[in-house]
């Protein structure tokens, strides 16, 4: 498993642990209410598990197992960029509503997530190919 996949997958596991912990707290709070402010964690719970865990794990495994060009995975820079953009976006979009930050920060978080997906697509698109092909065709 290459280095970038290890970063993607370990970050995904951290997000899973934090996301499940928040989810457990929210579900427990439904049973035995602790404090109404706990519901402020809900957007972070969604963001961490949908994008920080599921999407990030898919990117990490995709970078690892998609077809290669001989022994190279092609241009890795956009994939590294995707890693940093995605994690910045997830935490910004997750924390903004929780901390009542200006709405522009939530939008920025979502833009970072979108940019991460675009960067990952730039890396992965040529690797979605038959064995031995150059990756230039569809």
């Amino acid at each position: 498993m290459p280095r970038l996949s290890r970063w993607f997958i370990r970050a995904a596991l951290v997000n899973l642990a934090v996301g499940f912990t928040i989810g457990g707290l929210l579900l427990g709070h439904k049973a035995f209410p602790v404090h109404p402010l706990l519901w402020r964690l809900f957007p972070l719970h969604i963001e961490l598990l949908l994008f920080g865990w599921t999407l990030q794990l898919i990117m990490g495994v995709g970078f690892w197992i998609f077809p290669r060009f001989w022994r190279s995975r092609g241009n890795e820079r956009p994939a590294w960029l995707a890693f940093f953009l995605l994690n910045a976006g997830v935490w910004l979009a997750g924390l903004s509503p929780m901390l009542s930050l200006p709405p522009v920060l939530l939008t920025t978080g979502r833009l970072l997530e979108l940019a991460a997906v675009a960067a990952f697509a730039v890396h992965a698109w040529p690797r979605i190919k038959p064995p031995g092909a150059s990756g230039r065709g569809f």
Partner: peptide
């Protein structure tokens, strides 16, 4: 029931 289900799912995730 809800509290125990939360604890079980959290344990599985961790």
């Amino acid at each position: 029931g809800v509290a125990v289900s939360a604890l079980l799912q959290w344990t599985a995730g961790l």
